[in-house]
Design a protein around this nucleic acid. Structure first.
Lengths: 186, 186
DNA sequence: GTTGAAATTAGTACGAA
DNA sequence: TTCGTACTAATTTCAAC
């Protein structure tokens, strides 16, 4: 999907406050309401906006502890592992990664004992898991990735990257200068 | 803040779809609209709902690569480290953790080269950082932690689920069936 | 805690620029 | 594509119960 700068600004506004009305978006973006509706629809239909979710404070609902569980699989039994993952009520985030471990989970529970029970009693019984390493999260913070790191559609027409099939290679240094936003320095 | 089962169900609905209107929440929860408004207001004012955010697909905006950067600090220079973190446009998530490393970042960028530039050029110059280890994320998935792991005010008396001290364990399959909502019509 | 309106806002449709 | 407008449906607010 082709996105212009207005699309990106709309995404930024909705990332900041997902309940912003389309009328209010239109006003802030300086476009008509009907245009804003068209764009919003396109972003949702095109899968650019994957959802809008309330961020619930875990501590407020009695879920005071978070941990990362690094997983080493037994002979890459991904199918079994992924199938079982869906039944972990404590799961918040799952990532497959390069490096020493095969995957990482971020899990949350009311207390340290509950995390221990999850890892030592439940995960330990999964045949797909060879080993786990658990670390506790002592402080954390979420941020919004800048949406202006990559070129947007309107700026990509006149840019200078060569194409090789589906992949576009750009000179790293040029690309870098273009990609680093001015806001970076404050 | 004291939350009853209706509060928790409201949180679940808003976590699923943060744009659900308060009127629609009232209907789904089987309470009056003004009751729903009062509760919604209380959840926001009480900090239980920390925000509502659109989830933007990074790939759609040209941000195709994600990585975890594990950080070891030089003699625990947290102040310098945290101050500089705010200027990392690629940052999505930051955690202080127990174990081998002091902190972990999840960062996103258009390509592998941009991640390398961040870690090898920029982070490498921070005096507060002693060492970094970078792993790339090859696949990932977000999930919603069950909000019913801890006891809620009204459910603590009459619901099922065994307790071990402060922790209540519910049968996973039942919980799951209850948690996945049928798609709501507005 | 609920209900029933008024006031306001959101969402849709469509012709014109 | 975007805008403007007219129209309908839905939401929010508020007062009375």
């Amino acid at each position: 999907m082709q996105l212009d700068d207005t699309h990106v600004r709309m995404l930024e506004l909705l990332r900041e406050d997902g309940r912003t009305s389309v009328a209010s978006l239109a006003e802030q973006l300086g476009i008509s309401r009907s245009n804003a509706y068209t764009r919003y629809e396109a972003l949702v239909r095109g899968g650019v906006i994957k959802g809008v979710h309330a961020e619930v404070d875990p501590a407020s609902v009695g879920i005071g502890v978070a941990a990362m569980v690094f997983i080493t699989l037994r002979q890459s039994q991904w199918a079994d592992f992924r199938a079982r993952l869906t039944s972990v009520a404590e799961l918040e985030y799952y990532a497959v990664m390069t490096g020493e471990h095969d995957a990482m989970l971020i899990v949350r529970a009311p207390d340290v004992a509950a995390i221990h029970e999850l890892v030592a009693t439940r995960l330990a019984q999964w045949p797909s898991i060879k080993a786990t390493t658990t670390v506790f999260i002592m402080d954390e913070e979420r941020a919004h990735v800048s949406l202006r790191m990559a070129r947007t559609a309107s700026s990509s027409v006149e840019d200078s990257g060569e194409r090789f099939g589906m992949t576009r290679f750009v000179r790293t240094s040029d690309d870098r200068a273009q990609r680093v936003p001015e806001r970076r320095r404050r």
